[in-house]
Nucleic acid binder design. Structure first.
Lengths: 105, 105
DNA sequence: TATATCTATGTAGATCTCTACATGCAAGCG
DNA sequence: CGCTTGCATGTAGAGATCTACATAGATATA
């Protein structure tokens, strides 16, 4: 069973946001309403603790999209596990972030 | 002889800034005092006109330096030529930006 | 001269990442 | 119990990139 150190509410919320789509820091800010100064340090800690893993977007993609490059985050297995545990502890968590829907019905 | 279309003063200043070191947009902003909304569109035009060429910094370097990635610019031969012509037309140009010095005497 | 077009600039802000430091809180230790 | 130490958070802003639109200036054309 999960003997993982429990997540803070904020960390759980960020993991939940990442898990509801293919997201990056700026979108997590928008979805959660938390300021960048909360989000980015938290992402660093989550990555340091191996709950998430980051990869930079291809620079050619950013160029083509006419914006600065993004850093995308993925949950690791350990991250999935700890999020699942957090969802059980906070039943409302799953409703806090809108699941990224498929465009077009 | 230079039958090049003449540079605007701003464009010449930006080329001059780039030529005084290994620079990127943000530094050009600082050195020239011009706002980002002037600098970045101008850089795009200069690149479109083949006076400069851009290359993204390695992402691993940006990560190691704990900051967002930079886009570096280099003058092309054509850019050097047009800058040289501009320096003759505007003798003060060369004094407007400090040459990036070698650190340590 | 009047009009049309084209380009550069200015204004205003969006997009995206990151830190340094202060505070607050919890855990361990004497 | 009081102290230290360590971690998470909040505050405040820096570091970088980029755009869309309005206006102004230059050039061409009728």
């Amino acid at each position: 069973m999960a003997d993982e150190p429990r997540l803070s509410h904020t960390s759980a919320l960020i993991l939940q946001a990442l898990d509801t789509g293919h997201l990056y820091g700026y979108t997590v800010m928008e979805v959660t309403g938390l300021p960048s100064g909360t989000i980015y340090p938290a992402l660093r800690r989550l990555e340091r603790d191996r709950f998430i893993q980051s990869r930079w977007e291809r620079l050619s993609v950013a160029d083509a999209a006419l914006r600065p490059p993004r850093k995308y985050y993925q949950l690791t297995q350990s991250g999935e596990a700890v999020l699942e545990a957090a969802r059980k502890r906070y039943p409302l968590l799953a409703k806090l972030t809108p699941t990224k829907e498929v465009p077009d019905r």
